[in-house]
Amino acid sequence: MNSNKWYERSGRDGDVVISTRVRLARNLNRYPFPAEMNLEQKAQVVDSICKAAAKEGTPVSLRYIDVANLPQREALSLVERHLISPEFSRCEEGSGLLLSADEDVSLMINEEDHLRIQTMVPGLELDEAYETADQLDSFLDGQLRFAFDDRLGYLTQCPTNLGTGMRASIMLHLPALQDSGAIQQLANTVAKLGLTIRGLYGEGSKPEGAIYQLSNQVTLGISEKAAIENLKGIAAQIIRQERTAREELCRNPHFEDRVWRSLGILQTARLLTRDEFMALISNVRVGAALDMLPGVGLDLVSALINAAQPATLLAAAGEDLEPGARDALRAKIVRERLAETGKAQ
């Protein structure tokens, strides 16, 4: 397995921040939005964006993936790796994906908008993620002249994206805050500041793996820079709170026990459902962040979380498996990767 993808690494403030993503929504002037386009028009849009992206001087080299003709497990694996949206994985003919070799830049063509530029970086790296997206946007705009209005900014299908068309998100691991029941209050507070926080996997009050996504909501009347600064400020506060809550947790002997037991199950289990895996790996991740588990680093945890997702498992296996066989395969992969870890004590 190639180990240099962004979702298999950890980055700055990696104890709490898993990754950063910036998405820009852009459209071409001469065409209706994708929902209203016929196949011929869609093909034209795919063609002109691909040509523009391949032109000399492009800041990122990208390869084309025909998502509509991928096996379902591979399309869903792209969703699990956060490279495309769930809607896009179900897309029909006439949509396409441009992906960088490192998979840290993805361009969805004919999703809700003609173009969605996405950049992803491990850890808290809003400036870097935005800069990459911004450069690519400027390069493509030089050829395509994206739809823009002096008053409304970049024009998008959904009016909630007007203005900058930018959605910047931070993926956060908040097990201690979740334990203390502080997330709801946090959600209320960030909402007042034009941000939103929600569970990344699954709806409900306790998302699996305690993984949350914090992102900006308002896109009109606020510059990209201001929105990012806003997000940074709030993220810093959440990170501080999570760290304080973890210190509190460390004083509780049950917490240490839970971390080690979780590692023990992951190292020995023969069947692991996704839900069980996510709950256990969340405990192990905190342990890794606190340097409690020799040999278990945050990079390994990130790589495991990615490899254990259902469609990614199947895509790696190259075949569709019954849920039972899938759980066995998940347990096997996790067991092997964790075999030599955590033995010092």
Binding site: R145, F146, R151, T160, L162, G194, G221
Partner: peptide, 21 residues
């Protein structure tokens, strides 16, 4: 009016593409 309700504002203040003047 609806755009204003969604965003609280109605004047773009972010990036301006090179061609936009």
């Amino acid at each position: 009016p609806s755009i204003q309700r969604i965003h609280g504002k109605a004047q773009h203040t972010g990036k301006v593409p090179a061609g936009a003047g």
